[in-house]
């Protein structure tokens, strides 16, 4: 937590156009952001292009970041996630008319099978109950709207939201546990 003041200083420096501050923020946050981008976009070189594009946006729009509206990390996370989803949707649209038949089949066979290759084994999401795992996977990493998920999984819209709530709740719990473990280990 003592990092916050330091990070805040870097942010305000970057907002003034300081490239060194930007580089330090890059070093601090790029692994997490790249983790998210490359979970959405499997193709490595494309994921790297997107990450670059994201950081250029972060730089360009730095002045529009408002700490009152939320954390800097979340702000960057949203930029990266949204750009990646845009690319993913475009890809899907292009391959849609080719693969409509195949995809329908694949979705029909099993959701579980699909998740095995999209979620890494060490990923905490993979440890969530199946239905919550699927919600995070579809909403966050595949960019489905709630309505699409509701139709896809044939569950009511309200259930999609409640499951989203449970899933985030589980994530929170997981990280609290990890934090406790970390504290115990480091005392």
């Amino acid at each position: 937590m003592s990092q916050t003041a330091e990070v805040n200083k870097l942010i305000s420096e970057m907002q003034k156009g300081n490239e060194v501050a930007f580089a330090q923020l890059y070093d601090r946050y790029s692994p997490a952001l790249y983790g998210v981008v490359s979970k959405i976009i499997r193709e490595e070189s494309l994921a790297q292009d997107i990450l670059q594009d994201c950081f250029v946006t972060i730089w360009k729009k730095a002045q529009s970041f408002d700490a009152d509206k939320g954390s800097f990390f979340t702000w960057m996370l949203n930029i990266c996630r949204n750009k990646s989803i845009d690319v993913l949707r475009k890809q899907n649209r292009e391959s849609d008319h080719l693969n409509t038949m195949k995809e329908t089949e694949a979705l029909d066979t099993k959701e579980g099978a699909m998740n095995v290759n999209t979620i890494g084994l060490n990923d905490v999401v993979s440890k969530l109950p199946e239905e919550q795992k699927i919600i995070i996977e579809y909403l966050y990493f595949k960019g489905y709207t709630q309505k699409e998920v509701s139709e896809e999984l044939n569950i009511p819209l309200g259930t999609v939201k409640t499951r989203a709530r449970y899933a985030i709740g589980e994530l929170r719990k997981t990280f609290t546990t990890l934090l406790v473990l970390w504290i115990l280990k480091n005392i």
């Binding site: 997490a32 983790g35 998210v36 979970k39 979340t74 999401v125 985030i168 994530l171 990280f175």
Partner: peptide, 9 residues
């Protein structure tokens, strides 16, 4: 939670 999650991956 999402930030921690991003860090974890």
């Amino acid at each position: 939670a999402m930030e921690r999650y991003a860090e974890s991956i």
